[in-house]
Write a protein that binds this DNA or RNA. Structure first.
Length: 269
DNA sequence: CCCGTGCCCTGGCGGC
DNA sequence: TGCCGCCAGGGCACGG
C-alpha cells in the first residue's frame, strides 16, 4: 500500500536508475493498466527520454521530452529494472529502453494506472488537477474552513486526496494518534487547534517515514528490493490489543468507512 | 453539491 | 491436506 513516503522512496530510486533512458518499445501484457489507447500510447512514448521523475501526492510523474507519464501504484504496484529475460507473473507492462534494460510494472491486484499526457496539459488535466495540497503545503486556515463544512468522519476527510494529498490508511491512523484525535470525530467538530495539530502530525509522520524509506508491511516492498523501516515506528496501525505507547490502554481495531482503523480509545478524543 | 455503496482484482488466511 | 469463501484497499462511477 504505497502512500506518499513509499512513492517518494520509489521516485528517488527510479530517478537515480533510469534518468536519461530512452523508450524503444512497450509491451502491454495487461493493457487495462494503461488508461490511454494502447496503440497511441506506444506510438507516442517510443523515442522519448526520461528527463526527470517527480511526485505529487501518491502519483509518480516521469517527465519525458513531450509528455508526462503519470503512474499510480494503488495497493501493490511496483517497478523492477531488468535485462531481457522471461516475463514473470504479474509483470503487466514492460518498457524496453534503447540501452537494452527494461522497466517492468508489476502489480498483483492490477489496480494501478499509467497515463500519458502532454507536458503542456498534465497539471491542468485529470487526475493531477483534482489533487489537494500535501500536508507540508496546506494552508491551515483553508483546511480548517474545509473541515468546518464537512459532515463526515475526520478519517474519511484525511483519506480524500482532493482535500489533502498523500495520506493513506496507515499514515492517517498514525497522524490521528499523534494529534490525539479520534478517527470517528465529525470533521466539523474539529477545532482550529486540532486542525493545526493534525497537519503538524501528518508532516512529522510523513517526513520520518521518508527518512526511513517508507513502511514495509504485508506484501508491499518498494521497487528494486528496497525495504522501508518505518513499520518499526508505528504507534497504532496493526497494533490491535497491544498497549498504547502513551497511556498503555489496549489499542483497538475498528471499521471507519469500511477501512480497518486502529485507535487508542483512551487518549484519542 | 454531498455522501454512501459497489466495483475493480487476486493472494492469503480462517474455517472445516 | 485441500478446498471454499471472504477480506484487504484507493479511487471512481453511480445513485439517492
Amino acid at each position: 500500500m504505497p502512500e506518499l513516503p513509499e512513492v517518494e522512496t520509489v521516485r528517488v530510486t527510479l530517478e537515480k536508475e533510469i534518468s536519461n533512458e530512452e523508450f524503444a518499445q512497450v509491451d502491454a501484457h495487461y493493457p487495462k493498466i494503461i488508461t490511454n489507447d494502447t496503440h497511441e500510447f506506444k506510438q507516442k512514448i517510443v523515442g522519448q527520454k526520461i528527463n526527470r521523475i517527480d511526485r505529487m501526492g501518491k502519483y509518480l510523474i516521469f517527465i519525458l521530452d513531450q509528455d508526462a507519464l503519470i503512474i499510480h501504484l494503488r495497493m501493490e504496484g511496483k517497478f523492477f529494472i531488468k535485462l531481457d529475460e522471461p516475463i514473470q507473473k504479474h509483470e503487466h507492462v514492460v518498457f524496453h529502453f534503447k540501452s537494452g534494460r527494461n522497466l517492468r510494472y508489476h502489480d498483483v491486484r492490477k489496480f494501478g494506472t499509467i497515463t500519458l499526457i502532454p507536458l503542456s496539459e498534465y497539471l491542468d488535466t485529470y487526475p493531477l488537477n483534482q489533487l489537494g495540497d500535501e500536508p507540508k503545503d496546506i494552508n491551515i486556515e483553508h483546511f480548517y474552513s474545509v473541515l468546518n463544512k464537512k459532515n463526515t468522519e475526520i478519517k474519511a476527510v484525511l483519506l480524500d486526496q482532493h482535500i489533502i494529498a498523500g495520506l493513506g490508511n496507515i499514515y492517517v491512523d498514525e497522524t490521528l494518534f499523534l494529534s490525539h484525535v479520534h478517527p470517528t470525530r465529525i470533521a466539523s467538530s474539529i477545532t482550529y487547534d486540532e486542525a493545526k495539530w493534525i497537519i503538524q502530525a501528518a508532516i512529522q509522520v510523513l517526513d520520518k517515514a521518508i527518512q526511513l524509506g517508507g513502511t514495509t508491511i504485508r506484501s508491499y516492498t518498494s521497487s528494486l528490493g528496497v525495504h522501508g523501516r518505518f513499520q518499526n515506528e508505528l504507534n497504532v496501525h496493526m497494533k490491535a490489543n497491544e498497549p498504547c505507547p502513551r497511556c498503555q490502554t489496549k489499542i483497538i481495531k475498528m471499521k471507519v468507512k469500511g477501512r480497518g482503523t486502529y485507535v487508542c480509545p483512551s487518549c484519542q478524543k
